[in-house]
Design a protein around this nucleic acid. Structure first.
Lengths: 203, 203
DNA sequence: TTCCTACCCAAGCGCTAGCTTGGTAGCGTA
DNA sequence: TACGCTACCAAGCTAGCGCTTGGGTAGGAA
């Protein structure tokens, strides 16, 4: 998935990973393009030029951040649907693990959301489209299975419903705080209650 | 709301408005900061320096785009809740007019979403926070009224529910296309059906 | 004819971006 | 003692940024 490794810069090291995390926070808070290599250097306590001992470009730092996060996310999603439970339970788990990943990978997710349009123009990040396609496949399969099993309403368009769910969940990263009043799991339950049962009061 | 007018550049003109729209499309597609004044000039068929006959800065173009859109939106929202209908109908209308504004003001909304974090640091755009506060007040009032009237569930946190609705609706601007298979109104109905009744099949 | 206004060009200024280059301090290995 | 490797500094390159300045032109009013 990730770009060619094998150069002296291709292998991972502790320092390298730490630098990626430092850069990730800046990317998330100020935007990727608005974050300069001098900012990253300052935050890491080195001169900007020294970053190029570890990475061959600023883009490489971003790539490393995104590809490693997305690799994890896909693994988690695949595990959820491989379980073979009911669609309702599977959908619940997809929402829960998504919210959990939000508290662990806030920076990566934020960057992904904010810079998606920009990255679409870079061939290096073509793999983002592939990952999105698999994620969509997983969610929509669960939705279709739920309709087939009579658990979900049959009058809803699966694609529109998927987009609704995806957007609702992931955009929460904009305001979700780890130290906020609601934990990721509590938030997931709140969202699930809305998603499954709606806003209307039942009599 | 908007900055001081009255200079020779303060008044509106056809050319001025056309330039704002040209810039708006570029801002939306490439990001505000990634769009250079030379890009805008090229798209408008003039040299970049000529833009400064109409605007005193690139920031002014953005300000004009956002403030005029938000003025319209607030007027529309105020009219919806001033009607004095039921909370269910009011919420439905809020969602509908939001989706409608999406097809008319795609560029402004997209920019607002993508650059919100950046604009937070600019005093010139402090009014965005005020507008957001009023919008939130309007939505949450409808939600609370709905609970009080027994139309909406009482076990949901209004603030979390507001964020859920706001995010779900507005993020759709990322993929909504005017010429797509679904109109803004059709999309609104689909979303409302999900929001009110949820995903679960009722027996 | 003269003047004003709106609109635009041509050229370039000061600045900052990502990145490069040559060199060096510290440490483990033989 | 010498070597090689990792991590870094110091200095500066080129490209492109937002914006300025001075000037030119077309069209209408006086």
């Amino acid at each position: 998935m990730s770009p060619k490794q094998g150069t002296k810069q291709g292998r991972t090291s502790e320092r390298r990973e730490a630098l990626v995390q430092i850069a990730a926070e800046l990317f998330a808070d100020q935007g990727y393009r608005a974050t300069t290599v001098r900012h990253i250097g300052d935050a890491a306590g080195v001169l900007s030029g020294s970053l190029y001992h570890h990475f061959d470009s600023k883009e490489t730092i971003l790539d490393e951040l995104l590809s490693s996060y997305l690799g994890d996310l896909l693994d988690t999603y695949r595990a959820v649907v491989a379980d073979g439970t009911t669609p309702t339970r599977a959908l619940g788990e997809l929402v829960r693990v998504s919210f959990r990943s939000m508290s662990e990978h806030r920076a990566a997710i934020t960057v992904l959301q904010n810079e998606r349009g920009y990255l679409r123009g870079l061939p290096r990040f073509d793999y983002l489209t592939e990952v999105e396609a698999e994620v969509r496949r997983i969610w929509i399969t669960v939705l279709r299975d739920g309709v087939a099993a009579g658990e979900f309403r049959a009058d809803l368009d699966p694609l529109v419903t998927y987009r609704f769910l995806r957007d609702s969940v992931w955009v929460a990263v904009r305001w979700f705080r780890r130290d906020g009043s609601l934990s990721a799991d509590q938030l997931a339950e709140h969202y699930l209650s809305l998603i499954f049962d709606g806003l209307t009061q039942r009599v």
